[in-house]
Design a protein around this nucleic acid. Structure first.
Lengths: 114, 114
DNA sequence: AAGACATATATCTACTCGGTTATATAGCCA
DNA sequence: TGGCTATATAACCGAGTAGATATATGTCTT
């Protein structure tokens, strides 16, 4: 599993792979279940799953003859954190001190006196 | 400008382009300024800038002979919103679905041989 | 052990991508 | 106007990608 930003962003740039993640957000699924909505061959789906797994976005299990996939949120959190550095560019309220401080509960409004 | 998730994620998958965005987060810059930190040719940088612009991540201005670039946060907000749909999977305080999902067995985080 | 089933891997092809060098375009100044 | 500067575009190359079909692997069932 790579889990670098390169691999994660690259994996997410494909609509099929994002759709697969969307399906997995509703619970784990077998390869056959994941392939069903698409007009792609089974090997094509397996390839997409490999890309997602190497990016750290999903992981594989084993249940009898099937290898169900499930979401692994760490990679998504990683890019969410990266984007967070730019949040101030579109979110006006981000610049406010109280927003910084409320990252941890209980730290709220220690010195907000403007 | 495309601005689709495909184009945005794809643009962000390259470390040079992310570094360019990082530089632009500190203010607008000319192509020459953006190229300076890299050991790449000027045309290579121009290509990267074109990719970023077509994804809607930056935009070009005009000042005398230079074409300064600046951040355009809309595209970043777009993918931030997309990721937001998955926030519950890593943010405990968002809800508890992640706990429910990881209760199932058969996944490879437990690598004790059978 | 053999067959069936779910999935992975191998191989091939067309296309995209990131880089290069060479050249073109556009604005400023003497 | 001609030349300088900043940047864009064109043409090309090697590496990687997404798809296909064909085949292999691994597990359950009988």
């Amino acid at each position: 599993m790579d889990s670098s930003l390169d691999a994660i962003f690259s994996a997410l740039s494909d609509p099929t792979r994002r759709a697969i993640l969307g399906r997995l957000a509703r619970g784990k699924a077998t390869v056959a279940e994941l392939a069903d909505p698409f007009e792609l061959s089974q090997p094509a789906i397996s390839k997409h799953l490999k890309v997602l797994e190497q990016a750290g976005l999903i992981r594989s299990g084993r249940e009898a003859t099937s290898r169900p996939r499930e979401l692994q949120p760490d990679a998504l959190k990683k890019i969410s954190d990266w984007i967070g550095d730019y949040r101030r560019f579109w979110d006006q309220s981000f610049d406010r001190l109280d927003v910084y401080l409320s990252k941890e509960q209980g730290y709220e409004d220690d010195k907000s006196g403007d």
